[in-house]
Design a protein around this nucleic acid. Sequence first.
DNA 1: ACGGAGATTTGATCTGGATCAAATCGCAAT
DNA 2: ATTGCGATTTGATCCAGATCAAATCTCCGT
Lengths: 238, 238
Amino acid sequence: MDVARGEVLVISTSVACRSCQARHGVFCGALSAGQLSELGRHSLRRKVDAGCEIIAQGSENSFYSNITRGVVKLCKVMSDGRQQIVGLQFAPDFVGRPFVRESTLSAEAATDAEICVFPRNLLERMILETRELQRSLHAQALNELDAAREWMLTLGRRTAEEKVASLLHLIAAHAETATSTAFDLPLSRAEIADFLGLTIETVSRQLTRLRKEGVIRIENIRHITVPDMDALAKKISG
Amino acid sequence: MDVARGEVLVISTSVACRSCQARHGVFCGALSAGQLSELGRHSLRRKVDAGCEIIAQGSENSFYSNITRGVVKLCKVMSDGRQQIVGLQFAPDFVGRPFVRESTLSAEAATDAEICVFPRNLLERMILETRELQRSLHAQALNELDAAREWMLTLGRRTAEEKVASLLHLIAAHAETATSTAFDLPLSRAEIADFLGLTIETVSRQLTRLRKEGVIRIENIRHITVPDMDALAKKISG
DNA sequence: ACGGAGATTTGATCTGGATCAAATCGCAAT
DNA sequence: ATTGCGATTTGATCCAGATCAAATCTCCGT
């Protein structure tokens, strides 16, 4: 992680960082007070701008983090430049691949975000020591695996229109607003294309097609409203 | 699982089934002698024919199993019949999705296979009791997640020729022969198409193209030899 | 060996999405 | 307000892979 690209907000020194304790999914209820305190002494809360690379593909996994705000995209790039987003993570997901030296993907903030960073060694020690943390990370890994496999079906077998509708549905499900019929897209058209295995032109055309069909309204480039969520769901063949 | 479709080989009664102890990846070294014995008393070694459905999509997860021989495909089917293979599993992989009631995918023997089946409740209890088993299943989940994400790149961004070469490479890597330059395909052309998000015609054409280029030899429909593994690898853009 | 049915290959044509090209939009800096 | 530039949309054309159609091949049962 290039510290110069993000702004360090807080370096906790003697106690666990309070805002993190409450919001960090995998640690919630998994660690003792003493462990939280130790983790807090070594954790770093960071604010990262959209586009900031948190983990580089091929780099060493020397730290892990939790997302406390914003959206993070997981991306794989081929040597000729083709790339594929292989996962989106939202607060309070855990970011990183325990027990493997080199990262096979990059993690990049898709929106402005806040993360809480822990050193690799400390976290791996705590995983081995603490059954509940192991269980919690295992559960997240299984959920991500389910999501990845669901997305494999989308990538392999759905049409462009179904792909775009699937993505809108996914984002709506994670939107923080209570209504979730209106939400901001955390991704640019190019990123959407990289997630769906399409080109930006096709993404754009399918969005305008959904707009013309009345399934969505494009309030502005990054903001969508869905008058009838069922109509959107019907665009995705089960 | 429809018992009528498979043949029960052994019902272990008073000791853990010996052939399983040695070969079951996730249990190897993870369970105590007493636990292995208990597991053995409740496990069932089964021989399943190619095509036998081990877990049905949408069914209740009422048991788990380990593969002791053969290849199992994980498959998702859409209501209109389109389908996508989302994973291949080889001995000694663990099959099943702990902690979730309903299966979101089906597991089917791709080749004749042998599996060892355990009841859900027993296994989930042992996972909670036994840190080492939890760790071992966590590790498998993370490996499967890596594989799924690698495959997402293939599905979203590689060409048909690259996809077919990727699959051959994957299968060669899991082939049991020491040389691994000659191997049997565990999948039919239709299954390959479902794995790669292609049609059978395209798969067939790409295979004959690789044959004409001298990258592979098709000894017979299910048996391939690769004279030069590097030549095959070069067909897959990194 | 013979028939037959499914699996695979091969051929001809079509098409969804890619590519190439050109507006237009959005917005930050002046 | 004006300029400039990257992001997005829209249009025209192309092509990889799908679809439709027809041989072959495999292998099983008789």
